[in-house]
Nucleic acid binder design. Structure first.
Lengths: 233, 233
DNA sequence: CTTATCAGAAATGAATGCAAAATGCCAGTT
DNA sequence: AACTGGCATTTTGCATTCATTTCTGATAAG
């Protein structure tokens, strides 16, 4: 962990003062940096996060750091034990299941709302991304596929045009990104093909602007994704 | 606003020290108290929240207060303008629409999950609450109806057995509770009756454990509720 | 050799102090 | 009379300091 923190401190040091964008407080910057750092998975599950270390690395005092930690705890990324400091939140299988289901619910909502207000241009853009993803699938390019897949889902959420949905979705995405759930698909070729077929159906429903149907498809798609991810010994 | 703050100080003063529950830090207590205070609607929309005042009222220093404010800002209840302090977040019609839609999406999810795991006893309990609500409706008891209605929706969310869903729902509930959206139904008797019929259908779908159908019904129910609430000049 | 206990060290929780930014006020000007 | 510019006050942001709790590890008893 210490090495990672040192790396981060390095980045911080290379952009010392001029990088302070107008209107951004030290606290906000720190919050974003810390969140990214944890979401990226640089810290092990359940790892302690000593304030002193972070202070030295970020070259700040404890006050803004502690504020940021409180916010991250509220977001569910870390947990604060009274008088015992911050820990990276460990996620049980149940937690992962719950997170996936809520993500599914939010994507279902996104699909429904998107059907109501998405433009033809946006649909065309998603179709394009879909074909791109398909090419990754044919090439068995796991990384590219995963990236394209995530972009499509994000695009649907964005197309819903709902700020509350977007921020809620982003928050849960951060929490779930710590869970490595992409690697499993490589072992399960059937699931990969199935996922592609599900995406075909999703795109079709979006084209027809069939809100309820798309809503169902997206929820079930996420649920299947979760089942595939959790079916690992 | 000052009066309201003074009132709160009074409450705080009446339970000065003994109320400190074991394991709860000053920060957590303060956070809960502040959140309740704002959710209850004691502060006007857009009202400034000077730190000094709150400190005097709560008899604490600025440090824990500022931590609490940061968390409330992250929750979306207030907004923090850099160097200009905290304000109660004003909600535009768009914000209310977005909130209602996401609440609808979450309830739709709750219904779907509830269908999978709800017990017969819980269904019976909801039926009972439904009939209770119906009696309030017949008596034109707006307050009682509203209360029973909220209890039913909460019960469905609880029955979903998803911790992430519950906490997300609770957070959005807090943000939306500041909006008075109950009074309008009194003016629109048709909407009230329609809402009752929707609840009949919801209960029926739940009995049959028809997940997708219930999901649709709940989303549309919330959307209709929103439309009725926002149709006020 | 294991385990219990206790003192020192370290970390957290909260309060205070200081610098910078913003708000408000008043005078001077047009 | 209205508007602009500058100064004083207030308020926020962050650092530092103090108090309390927890952790560590060394020592001694079983």
């Amino acid at each position: 962990m210490t090495d990672a923190l040192l790396d981060m401190a390095g980045e911080q040091a290379t952009v010392p003062a001029g990088c302070v964008k107008a209107g951004t407080s030290l606290h906000d910057e720190l919050l974003a940096a810390l969140r990214d750092f944890i979401v990226e998975g640089n810290l092990a599950d359940g790892a302690r996060i000593p304030e002193r270390l972070l202070c030295e690395r970020f070259q700040i005092s404890r006050t803004p750091l502690r504020e940021a930690l409180k916010v991250l705890a509220a977001e569910g990324l870390i947990e604060l034990l009274p008088n015992r400091g911050a820990r990276v939140r460990e996620m049980s299988d149940n937690d992962v299941r719950d997170l996936f289901d809520v993500m599914g619910g939010l994507e279902a909502l996104a699909g429904r709302l998107a059907c109501e207000r998405i433009s033809e241009a946006e649909i065309a853009r998603i179709e394009q991304m879909h074909h791109e993803m398909y090419r990754f699938y044919l090439r068995r390019d796991m990384h590219g596929y995963f990236h394209a897949n995530q972009a499509i889902h994000q695009m649907i959420v964005t197309a819903a045009g709902n700020a509350v949905l977007s921020s809620t979705y982003a928050s849960l995405s951060g929490r779930i990104r710590r869970v490595r759930y992409s690697a499993n698909m490589a072992k399960d070729r059937d699931r990969w093909g199935e996922a592609m077929r599900e995406h075909e159906a999703i795109l079709d429903a979006l084209r027809r602007r069939a809100g309820s149907e798309l809503s169902d498809l997206l929820f079930l798609h996420l649920r299947n994704k979760r089942k595939a991810a959790q079916a690992n010994p």
